Computed example of a mutant assay.
Amino acid sequence: MTHSDNTAPSAFNSTNLPALPPASTEHQSRLYSTLNIPLFWGDYTNLDSATELELDFEMERELTNHEHDSTRSINNERWAFQHDNKWAHFLYIFQLLSSGFIPMFFLTTLTVELKANIILSGSIIAFMALGNLSAFMMTRPLYHISFMLLTGVVTAATLIWKQQTLWGFWQGHSFFITGCVLFFLAVIGCELLLFLHAYFYQHDGSQFNRRTGMVHLAGKRWRKPFVAPFYEFDPVMQVQVMPHGQRDYVLWLYHRYTDKKVCLANRIHSLGLDQNNLRAFWDTLQRYMDVSQPLPDLPVLEPCRQQDPVTAAYDQAQNRPPRYWRDMSERRFKQEVLPRLREQLRNASWPSGPGLIAAHTDPTLSVADYYRAQQARGIHATPQPQAFEHTHSQAAVE
């Protein structure tokens, strides 16, 4: 199966790769460092991660009525990174802490106003605050919001009763005022800011582009993005040792000729993948970028399969139903499709040698000459030939 004639010269086509210069010794050392397990190119198993497929299926069920929703992170042309911004994490942590502290402020006000036993009241306050924090993390938002609202109303009613007035009872009660402010921020303010953040900053511009074959990595602190062909990145499965001894695996891509690298965990793939699911995800990503292959058969890609010529021709030849995933019942998916895929992943034979990239590596080709040849083909990447003119070692890109 061949790629479409209108694909860019930089498009990744596993049947037609250019000659590539060998990687430096420093780069090889990075790939084989502690906790790193190098992965290999080519030899597709045509298996997808069961974990990712389950998430995709649930997501598509929510988006099924919005087939051309512009908020999708993936379509037939580009797979955008989820935006990983510390501001969003800060808002969530603030909301989490507020949910625990709000009852403490309200109940402390009651303790002072009613002159209750400090030790007993303190124990009750701590218990109720932890309970509300647990409700925030483990139950529906309505439960912990109702609890916070109830403690606030009871505190306000007590102050009204003690002050014998509907107005001005908050004077001198800074704990009560603080609790009210935190309640507003936790229930409305943080949610609004998180919504605005997700709406305007869902993606940071980083993406895998199937049509052009280029990887775009957003620059930090107003730096220009790093752009290079997909086939210039080497995949590594990195072991993540968790606090309780579990092992998760995440996918890193190391650029072969510079010191640029990117972790795809929580930006392209989810956390908590085992080795088989991560290897399958790498297989999926390769097939997504390979214009000689149809798009991976994922629920989130089903609405745009007909927009990709290679995929459309493949689906027609295979007589694939255009709404295969969208018309599938949840029961069938969980009882038939997922168990079968998990069994296939357990029995899969994964690539164990350099394969595709090694077959196209020319040990006589310098990195500078390679990039000059790329530019002559109309492929303009961030690394420039002149950066490699007088060195055979790995060059850093600022």
Rank of each mutant, 00 (worst) to 15 (best):
Ala8Lys: 15
Phe12Val: 07
Leu17Arg: 00
Leu20Thr: 07
Pro21Val: 12
Pro22Phe: 04
Thr25Leu: 14
Gln28Ala: 09
Leu35Lys: 15
Ala50Phe: 01
Thr51Gln: 10
Glu52Ser: 11
Glu52Ile: 04
Leu53His: 05
Phe57Asn: 07
Glu60Trp: 03
Leu63Thr: 10
His66Pro: 00
Ser70Val: 08
Arg72Thr: 08
Trp79Lys: 03
Gln82Lys: 14
Ile93Glu: 12
Phe94Glu: 13
Ser98Asn: 13
Ser99Glu: 13
Leu107Lys: 14
Thr108Leu: 02
Val112Met: 05
Glu113Phe: 03
Asn117Tyr: 00
Ile119Lys: 07
Gly122Arg: 14
Ile124Leu: 13
Ile125Arg: 02
Met128Thr: 06
Thr139Pro: 00
Phe147Cys: 06
Leu150Ile: 10
Leu150Ala: 09
Val153Met: 08
Thr158Asn: 08
Lys162Cys: 07
Leu166Ser: 12
Trp170Pro: 13
Val181Asn: 09
Val181Arg: 04
Cys190Thr: 12
Leu193Lys: 01
Gly205Gln: 03
Gln207Tyr: 01
Asn209Gly: 08
Arg210Cys: 10
Arg210Pro: 12
Gly213Gln: 06
Leu217Glu: 08
Gly219Val: 05
Trp222Tyr: 07
Arg223Asn: 15
Phe230Ser: 08
Glu232Ile: 00
Phe233Glu: 06
Val236Asn: 12
Met237Gly: 15
Met237Arg: 06
Tyr249Phe: 15
Arg256Ala: 15
Asp259Ala: 09
Val262Phe: 02
Leu271Tyr: 04
Ala280Ser: 11
Phe281His: 12
Gln286Lys: 07
Arg287Cys: 15
Arg287Phe: 09
Leu295Glu: 11
Asp297Ile: 05
Val300Thr: 10
Pro303Ala: 09
Gln306Cys: 03
Gln307Ala: 14
Pro309Ala: 01
Gln318Lys: 15
Asn319Ile: 10
Tyr324Gln: 10
Arg326His: 12
Glu330Thr: 06
Phe333Pro: 10
Lys334Met: 02
Lys334Val: 01
Arg340Glu: 13
Leu341Phe: 07
Gly353Met: 09
Gly353Phe: 13
Ala359Thr: 04
Asp362Lys: 03
Asp369His: 13
Gly378Trp: 02
Thr391Ala: 14
Gln394Ala: 06
